[in-house]
Nucleic acid binder design. Sequence first.
DNA 1: CTTGTAGCTCTAGTTGCTAGAGGTGTTACG
DNA 2: CGTAACACCTCTAGCAACTAGAGCTACAAG
Lengths: 137, 137
Amino acid sequence: MLTIGELSRQTGVKIPTIRYYEQMGLMDAAERSEGNQRRYTREEQDRLSFIRHARDLGLTIEAIRKLIDLSAHPERPCADADRIASEQLQAVRAKIEKLKRLESELERIATHCHGDQVKDCYVIRALANHELCEHEH
Amino acid sequence: MLTIGELSRQTGVKIPTIRYYEQMGLMDAAERSEGNQRRYTREEQDRLSFIRHARDLGLTIEAIRKLIDLSAHPERPCADADRIASEQLQAVRAKIEKLKRLESELERIATHCHGDQVKDCYVIRALANHELCEHEH
DNA sequence: CTTGTAGCTCTAGTTGCTAGAGGTGTTACG
DNA sequence: CGTAACACCTCTAGCAACTAGAGCTACAAG
Ligand SMILES: [Zn+2]
Ligand SMILES: [Zn+2]
Ligand SMILES: [Zn+2]
Ligand SMILES: [Zn+2]
């Protein structure tokens, strides 16, 4: 049995975050010591690692909750899990596209100022005038 | 003079958001009608467009506040404005890099499942085991 | 048996809005 | 001039996913 501090060190998840995941129903309410402190099993450590990995990949708490529910039913079809993964892939790709458009505008904005007073500053002018932009955003 | 609704339509910024910007000190407290309703000038519309454009480019409220303060002093050097723009560019590039790493992991995860039961699902296995990943994240 | 570290609960703060309740102002039409 | 429809007002609370702090209790080492 691990204390919450040991679990935190093992998984790299901060202590308040572990308690938050319990509150959100991602982690089951842990067993307690005589003195009301949480004690974790190896399986609970695995689950927390799963959660952390999914969070690192950008999945929402809600999506992770669904995946955990699915894992509890190994005989069911996995289409839902597969869909969650591809939706996340789509979402990440959409974000990348949007950020790339921002990158190109910001590169122009951040590299074209040759004035040294605010009244001549290209940054300020570019922000005031979207006409200078190449794309919508 | 524009009402808040007209200003909203002109700039594409929602009414509660305009009031929020006033609360955050990005917009000055607007002049009021007899009956206590906000009335805006053309300059205030320009400022709101500036704010919206900066937000669309991902700048934080805090950064925008600094840019507005700078604009009020046209004789000062613009180095601070230039720095804000390049920091934002750096931040956007860092996000893109991170998301690209996620994209490659997620592509693998989302396209490798050929089972149809949860117990054989590659998505679930991949999330449980970061060893299967190519990069850190 | 004391001391220091680790744990507990509960509340509030972060960012940038957005929604709703409950009330008032403004305007156009008849 | 009255009234209906619509726009606007303030204030509070909610979202996501934590994070920080106050004030308290448990546990392990010496
Ligand atoms: Zn400049
Ligand atoms: Zn633009
Ligand atoms: Zn699958
Ligand atoms: Zn991984």
